[in-house]
Amino acid sequence: MQIFVKTATGKTITLEVEPSDTIENVKAKIQDKEGIPPDQQRLAFAGKQLEDGRTLSDYNIQKESTLHLALR
C-alpha cells in the first residue's frame, strides 16, 4: 500500500509499505529515499509519536495515510 510522509520542510515522500511493516522498517525506507538516518527520525500520526517496534497496523495506519516526520 502507499503512504505519504510529510517532512518538516513541507516535502511529501511517497512510500510503498505493508500494514505489517514496523515503524523501524518505514524509517529505513525513508533513509533509502532521503538519506536521513533512522535514529534522527521521529514519526507521528494523528498526533501520536510512533514507536520503532510497533507496526503500521498497530496504529491503524491505512493506505494513503500521511505520517509526519520530524528530525531530532
Results as ranks from 00 to 15, higher is better:
47 G>Y: 05
1 M>N: 03
66 T>E: 15
10 G>M: 10
49 Q>N: 14
45 F>G: 02
53 G>T: 08
17 V>I: 04
2 Q>Y: 13
68 H>D: 10
50 L>K: 00
21 D>I: 06
52 D>T: 09
10 G>R: 05
27 K>Y: 03
28 A>V: 09
21 D>G: 04
4 F>W: 06
32 D>Y: 07
62 Q>E: 12
63 K>W: 10
25 N>A: 11
60 N>G: 08
37 P>Q: 13
38 P>Y: 12
44 A>V: 14
71 L>R: 09
61 I>G: 00
38 P>H: 15
66 T>R: 04
17 V>F: 05
61 I>P: 01
25 N>P: 01
62 Q>W: 11
30 I>R: 00
27 K>E: 01
47 G>P: 01
51 E>S: 06
1 M>R: 03
28 A>C: 04
27 K>M: 04
40 Q>D: 11
63 K>D: 13
56 L>W: 01
67 L>T: 02
24 E>N: 12
37 P>E: 12
7 T>P: 06
47 G>N: 07
61 I>Q: 01
47 G>T: 05
29 K>I: 10
16 E>G: 10
11 K>P: 07
72 R>T: 14
55 T>D: 03
61 I>W: 01
19 P>L: 10
13 I>M: 10
16 E>F: 11
24 E>A: 08
12 T>V: 10
59 Y>E: 03
7 T>Q: 06
14 T>Q: 08
68 H>P: 01
58 D>E: 10
42 R>F: 14
11 K>S: 15
61 I>F: 02
38 P>E: 06
14 T>G: 12
55 T>M: 10
43 L>K: 00
40 Q>L: 10
41 Q>I: 15
6 K>G: 04
60 N>Y: 06
64 E>R: 13
42 R>W: 06
59 Y>R: 01
46 A>D: 08
66 T>P: 02
25 N>Q: 13
68 H>I: 09
65 S>K: 04
56 L>M: 05
52 D>Q: 05
1 M>D: 02
9 T>Q: 13
34 E>I: 12
46 A>L: 08
47 G>H: 11
12 T>L: 13
18 E>N: 10
1 M>F: 14
20 S>F: 15
45 F>Q: 03
64 E>N: 15
6 K>R: 10
12 T>D: 05
30 I>E: 00
44 A>Q: 15
21 D>H: 15
43 L>R: 00
8 A>C: 05
39 D>F: 15
30 I>N: 01
49 Q>A: 11
35 G>P: 03
67 L>A: 01
56 L>A: 02
10 G>D: 07
30 I>M: 03
24 E>F: 15
64 E>M: 07
57 S>V: 09
14 T>Y: 06
12 T>A: 06
41 Q>Y: 15
26 V>N: 00
70 A>R: 08
26 V>C: 03
31 Q>P: 01
51 E>H: 14
17 V>Q: 02
26 V>R: 00
37 P>D: 07
44 A>Y: 13
71 L>C: 05
12 T>Q: 12
65 S>N: 09
5 V>K: 00
7 T>I: 11
11 K>Y: 14
54 R>Y: 13
16 E>V: 08
32 D>Q: 14
52 D>S: 09
57 S>L: 08
25 N>T: 12
48 K>P: 02
36 I>W: 10
19 P>T: 13
27 K>H: 02
21 D>Q: 06
8 A>L: 12
69 L>C: 03
17 V>C: 04
59 Y>M: 03
30 I>A: 01
50 L>E: 00
44 A>P: 00
40 Q>A: 12
69 L>E: 01
66 T>C: 04
31 Q>I: 02
33 K>N: 06
68 H>K: 05
34 E>L: 14
11 K>T: 11
59 Y>P: 00
12 T>Y: 06
18 E>L: 13
36 I>R: 03
48 K>T: 13
29 K>C: 03
63 K>N: 14
28 A>T: 14
17 V>D: 00
54 R>G: 06
24 E>I: 14
12 T>W: 13
55 T>P: 06
5 V>Q: 00
64 E>T: 11
48 K>Q: 06
55 T>V: 09
14 T>I: 08
65 S>L: 03
67 L>G: 01
22 T>K: 13
62 Q>A: 08
68 H>M: 13
18 E>K: 12
71 L>S: 07
31 Q>K: 06
49 Q>G: 11
30 I>D: 00
26 V>M: 04
22 T>H: 07
55 T>W: 04
60 N>M: 08
36 I>T: 07
11 K>N: 11
25 N>S: 15
49 Q>V: 15
51 E>K: 08
29 K>W: 05
51 E>R: 06
14 T>C: 04
68 H>W: 09
22 T>A: 11
55 T>S: 08
40 Q>N: 14
63 K>A: 10
19 P>M: 13
40 Q>W: 09
45 F>Y: 13
52 D>F: 04
8 A>P: 08
9 T>A: 09
54 R>W: 08
28 A>S: 14
64 E>K: 07
46 A>C: 05
16 E>L: 15
12 T>P: 05
65 S>R: 03
41 Q>V: 06
29 K>Y: 13
39 D>L: 13
24 E>C: 05
35 G>A: 06
8 A>N: 10
19 P>C: 04
39 D>V: 08
45 F>T: 03
69 L>G: 02
41 Q>P: 01
69 L>D: 01
32 D>W: 13
24 E>V: 11
63 K>I: 07
39 D>R: 13
36 I>F: 14
16 E>I: 14
62 Q>Y: 13
39 D>A: 11
10 G>A: 13
32 D>V: 13
59 Y>C: 03
66 T>G: 02
22 T>R: 14
53 G>K: 08
2 Q>S: 08
24 E>T: 06
4 F>N: 05
38 P>W: 13
20 S>G: 11
7 T>E: 06
23 I>D: 01
25 N>L: 09
4 F>Y: 10
35 G>H: 06
39 D>I: 15
47 G>A: 05
70 A>L: 06
35 G>Q: 08
66 T>A: 04
32 D>A: 08
3 I>M: 04
31 Q>W: 15
28 A>P: 01
13 I>R: 02
36 I>M: 06
13 I>Q: 02
29 K>V: 05
55 T>K: 13
69 L>R: 01
31 Q>R: 08
35 G>F: 08
12 T>K: 07
